[in-house]
Amino acid sequence: MKLRVDQLEGQLKKQLAPVYIISGDEPFQVSQCCDQVRQYARAAGFSERHVYHVENNFDWGDFLATANSLSLFAEKQILEIRMPSGKPGDAGSKAFMEYTSHLSPDNLLLLITDRLDSTQQKAKWFQPLEKVGNFVAIWPVESAQLPTWLGQRLHSDGYRATPEALSLVAERVEGNLLAASQELEKLKLLAKDQTIDEETVRNSVADSARYDVYQLIDTALAGNTRQCIRILGVLKGEGLEPPIILWALAREVRLLSQLSRSLSRGLALDLAIDQSAKAMGFNAFLLKRRKGLLNKAITRHSERDFRAMLNASGNVDRCIKGIEKGNVWDQLLSLTLYLSGLPPMAVIR
């Protein structure tokens, strides 16, 4: 059964399904949905949890052995498979089909993937899982929808906000739902009589942190490596979460990569910005105000450099999620300095 994000909790309250597929490219909503499934599963007695990361040479036999290893007095268990690619391969497809043909009430399968396209949703491995479980496809919250999303989250916690306040928060977080959620938590502490107005938002100290994130990006584009080190140190000291910084860096690198490709095809920078803004959901007017900085970074780097930075962003993301080992802040620093013009350090190769 296909569910929207806002339908998931209602379904969980009625009855746990044996399989949940959480799919999407918006990390915050994916995390929230997975937390909901785990919460209701634990309340239903699923006290054990086994987590599998599907990479090259993943042992699907280990997953099936765990699924089939329960004895009469064993604990119920959550089998959590993190498969970003959405491609289990032949061995994984067979494992999923075998799993669904011998479902146990003591197992709950939680499959987490990046966004699955229509072809993947028609795959032989996917259809048996969806038939016995629930599929939650998560789409990014569009800019125009973000104030409504913010208002719904506040309302569910017993707060209300004026339209002006919601629009201002939406403008500040620029589509980053993790940053939005953290901003709302801080605003709730400042709210008077459970109400958040525009003045409350403007007085929020969270704005300084948000400004520094974007100051970090512009400083890197300008090539000021010394200032990059200082700003990143401030962000770390203030307790800003690494995913927010990574989101901002990766978003900028994807934009620069696309602009670089457009310029290599002979487009003028203004036209390239217009096309990239439309394709990626940026505000073209605001981008053109930063045209000088963008041009500096594009001139300084090759398309190959930007691809390397995107690969490095993926490495940092896996480190944040615990899939790979490494110091997240060291990797963020290396990525930032690479963008600012320094050669890539070994830590992000």
Rank of each mutant, 00 (worst) to 15 (best):
L108C: 07
L187S: 02
L16H: 02
A165E: 00
R265Y: 09
L221C: 10
S276N: 00
P88L: 11
V19P: 05
L267M: 11
A74W: 01
P84I: 01
Y214R: 08
I273K: 07
Q15H: 10
V51E: 08
R42C: 08
L271T: 06
I244M: 13
Q182S: 13
P88M: 14
T200R: 01
S101A: 15
V234K: 15
Q15P: 07
G89S: 05
I21M: 08
V141G: 11
R318V: 04
S47D: 11
D106R: 02
L221F: 12
P163I: 04
F285H: 02
L310N: 01
L129S: 10
K14W: 05
L310S: 02
P242E: 07
A279C: 05
E252R: 13
D317Q: 14
Q121G: 14
L108K: 00
R304G: 13
Q145F: 09
Y211I: 13
N315R: 13
E80N: 11
L178H: 05
V5Q: 10
F96N: 01
A250L: 05
L240T: 06
A284D: 09
D197G: 01
W139F: 14
L249Q: 06
V30S: 01
L64P: 00
K288R: 14
K288W: 11
K14E: 15
G281I: 07
P128F: 04
W149N: 06
